[in-house]
Amino acid sequence: MQKYANPTRFMKIADAVLPWLTTATVILFVAGLYLTSVAPPDYEQGHTVKIMFIHVPSAWLAMMCYTIIAASSVGSLIWRHPLADVSAKTAVPIGVAFTFLALVTGSLWGKPMWGTYWVWDARLTSVLVLFFLYLGLMALWQAIEDPSRAGRSAAILAIVGFVNVPIIKFSVDWWSTLHQPASVVKMSGPAIHSSILIPLLVMAAAFTCLFFVLHLRAMQNEILRRRVMAMRLLQVERAANVEAGAPAE
């Protein structure tokens, strides 16, 4: 276990994986955008179905990213795994971005579909709550100065939030059936036609690859940042020793 916890080894593995992953991301995006542009309009929603090709992957990543944060938090709380801490920290801003995109594209999709930018539909509302959970995590990371305390506090909050996500989802579903009994337009009928499903899957794969590229890079950056901090501390320490007349080493 300790072997894989090693940040140096992680840097090497990430360096080896990233070029491939980046290439895959580019190819998937090119293919996905091409398929998106030639996808036929949906008979019910017309061309606005094209928004789905970016909305659904964003929403999917918003959830996957929170799961990764929660899993990393367990790792950093229980095993004190330094990489888990780095992973949980760097995934937060990326998750915020994808959740924000899911909300914005959802509301831009809602305007032509429902006539307003915002509907208190169960799905939109739960994504909004997820966004608040993300904001709380981000605020907690920023409010606590000591990095190790910040990491473990954020880990506790992420796990508490993760336990609550299904409960919140369930209660929002309950609430929305109470207030608008089945009046909302069904997203895409009983089964999604393959002409829409295939571009959707390719775009979802492209977004997922992009997420991993960004996350790995951000983790590398964070490791480097911690090294720079440690070296600066060391530099100051040595300078102080020299001034005090003691040998530097």
Partner: peptide, 27 residues
């Protein structure tokens, strides 16, 4: 407990806790 001893802890507290209150509110 999470915001103990932080500056502006009260504001942060509401951001952290209110989303968790949603199920209680709804039911």
């Amino acid at each position: 407990a999470l915001t103990l001893g932080l500056r502006r802890g009260g504001l942060l507290l509401s951001l952290l806790v209110l989303p968790l209150y949603i199920p209680i509110l709804i039911f």
